[in-house]
Design a protein around this nucleic acid. Structure first.
Length: 288
DNA sequence: CTAGGATCCTGTCAGC
DNA sequence: TGCTGACAGGATCCTA
């Protein structure tokens, strides 16, 4: 799914398009996606205007002038698509970004007077919840999260939090949102390659300096993803109309098994770590 | 605390 | 062609 760079790309688009607009109605095409009392739609959502669109970890926060906020998680296959005078899409890249909507992946539709916002999610893991804006930071979803890697200084918090898991693999540790937020399977692999750390290395086997260097590599990888525009309609459809892969713009190892390492030329291999497909250069990333 | 597996879903792809 | 199993950018829950 969308990791931090993709969710932040969604956030920027929604903030630009939605702020100041009023939600006229909501169509619920999949009951389980909207995870709050549906009667609350009438009380706190319909008729409200969007005040701001924020992000925490991999979640979107749509603040409404009812003093309630929609909390959105795209999980593996969630995407947001705006259709109005302008057409815009970001999140999980697939044909729903460019085809007629609603389609079979559409779960929720927010209707505005000048357009529609589609929440599409093929696998139905994604969800939308509703909380009073001033209670958000105390919710189970947000309360225990680790620091943001690209805003504020995460170093002290990161070190303290990752040291709580001395015997876990470094890959599992950086995927843990209570240690550092925003890292998913792609950016975990990219960061570990950049830092030349084998994903199965135990946390206790790395010094503070090595962990902080890895943190810098996490920040660099996430920033590279963000700079390439996350996964948006623009980079999903190439100029010639064919389908593109935004990973090509920055990925060194993810999805590149069998290809040569950009640094040493050794063949990239795919293994399994922490239950996830994991891409490494076995020459650059040796298990000590 | 930790590893591993199952789970929530739908779709695609490789191999037979 | 059809079938089967593995796998997919997330996260939680359970067992051992």
């Amino acid at each position: 799914m969308p990791e931090l760079p993709e969710v932040e790309t969604v956030r920027r688009g929604l903030d630009r398009i939605l702020v100041g607009k009023q939600i006229l109605s909501v169509d619920v095409l999949n009951d389980k996606t909207l995870q709050f009392a549906h009667t609350d739609l009438n009380t706190f959502v319909i008729g409200a205007k969007v005040v701001a669109v924020r992000r925490r970890a991999k979640m979107l926060i749509i603040d409404l002038d009812s003093d309630y906020s929609l909390l959105v998680h795209l999980k593996m296959t969630g995407q947001m698509v705006w259709r109005g005078a302008e057409s815009w899409a970001a999140g999980h890249p697939n044909d729903s970004m460019v085809g007629d909507l609603p389609d079979r992946t559409t779960r929720i539709i927010f209707n505005f007077d000048d357009g529609q916002l589609f929440f599409n999610d093929q696998r139905k893991f994604g969800w939308i919840r509703l909380y009073p804006t001033n209670t958000l930071s105390d919710t189970p979803e947000l309360a225990k999260l680790g620091p943001e890697p690209l805003t504020s200084d995460p170093t002290i918090s990161f070190l303290r939090r990752i040291r709580r898991h001395p015997r876990t693999s470094i890959k599992a540790a950086i995927l843990n949102q209570q240690v550092i937020v925003g890292v998913g399977n792609i950016y975990a692999d990219e960061s570990l390659w950049l830092a030349k750390v084998h994903p199965q290395t135990r946390v206790e086997g790395l010094s503070d300096d090595e962990l902080l260097h890895l943190l810098e590599c996490i920040q660099k990888s996430l920033q590279a993803g963000l700079n390439s525009g996350g996964s948006t309609m623009r980079n999903y459809v190439r100029v010639d109309g064919t389908r593109g892969n935004y990973l090509d713009k920055f990925a060194h190892v993810y999805g590149r098994e069998g290809e040569p390492c950009d640094r040493c030329g050794h063949e990239i291999i795919k293994i399994k770590v922490a239950g996830r497909g994991t891409h490494i250069c076995p020459n650059c990333q040796k298990l000590r």
